[in-house]
Every structure is written in C-alpha cells, then in structure tokens.
C-alpha cells in the first residue's frame, strides 16, 4: 500500500500533503503521530459536556493538524465545530445536531485511523 493509496482510502488530499511535506516518508511519519496525538480524545471529552471553550479549543487544534496533514474532509468537518463554538458568534446548531456532527467526525477519524494502521502494517 502506498501513501497515495492510503489518502484515496481515507478521503484525504494527497496532493495537498505532498505540497507541504514533499516526501511520502515525511507524510507517513506525521500521519502515524496523529493516532497518538490525543486530538480526537480531547474533542470527544469536550463533546460530553459541550463546554463551549473546550469544544472550540479541541476542535481548533484538530482542525489545524488535520489541515496540515491534507486530511481536508476531516478538517472541514471539524472546522464547522470550531465556528459553532467560536467566542462571540452565536450558535447555529442544536446540541443534538452538534452531537450528530461529532459522531460523524469520530466515524471519519476512525476510518482514517484504521487506514493508517493498515498502511502501517503494509510497510512492516
């Protein structure tokens, strides 16, 4: 399995990742770090209470990292949460709708994490 195959499998933007990190070796190095970054766990924890500050900070952190990795679909979905909880702007979605968005993000993240694990195994 190549890095490009992996990006196709997880709805990532391989071209964007290459633009920033140049080499597959580098892209895979940082992708592997994503699994242990704690980003999704922080977002899930914030989702339990829907504390707006925690929601904004954890979504914002995840948005930045996933965007830099070229995980555009995931990043776009998290970005919607960032805007929802940005200080000073009014909420557009109900709590239930936010929870549904969170589930969607977790599912996509899981798909990404699974793809990364599969890729990891393929190169061992």
């Amino acid at each position: 399995m190549t890095v490009e195959d992996l990006y196709a499998q997880i709805d990532g933007n391989y071209a964007h990742a290459v633009q920033i990190m140049k080499k597959d070796k580098m892209i895979s190095k940082y992708l592997l770090k994503l699994k242990n970054s704690g980003l999704i766990e922080n977002l899930q924890a914030a989702g339990e209470s829907l504390d707006p500050v925690a929601m904004f900070e954890s979504a914002h952190a995840m948005k930045g990292v996933t965007a830099n990795l070229g995980l555009d679909t995931l990043s776009d979905k998290v970005s919607a949460l960032t805007e929802e909880f940005r200080q000073g702007s009014s909420r557009k979605y109900s709590d239930d709708e936010v929870k549904a968005m969170l589930e969607d993000i977790c599912a996509l993240y899981q798909k990404t994490a699974d793809g990364i694990s599969e890729y990891e195994q393929s190169i061992q």
């Binding site: 990190m21 580098m26 770090k33 970054s37 980003l39 990292v65 830099n68 990795l69």
Partner: peptide, 14 residues
Amino acid sequence: EDQEINRDILGMIL
C-alpha cells in the same frame, strides 16, 4: 505552537 505535529511539520520545513 501547541500541536506537536504542526511544530514538527514547521521544523521540517525550516
């Protein structure tokens, strides 16, 4: 930068 991955990517570039 608080996110390790972002720090690393910037580090790699610079």
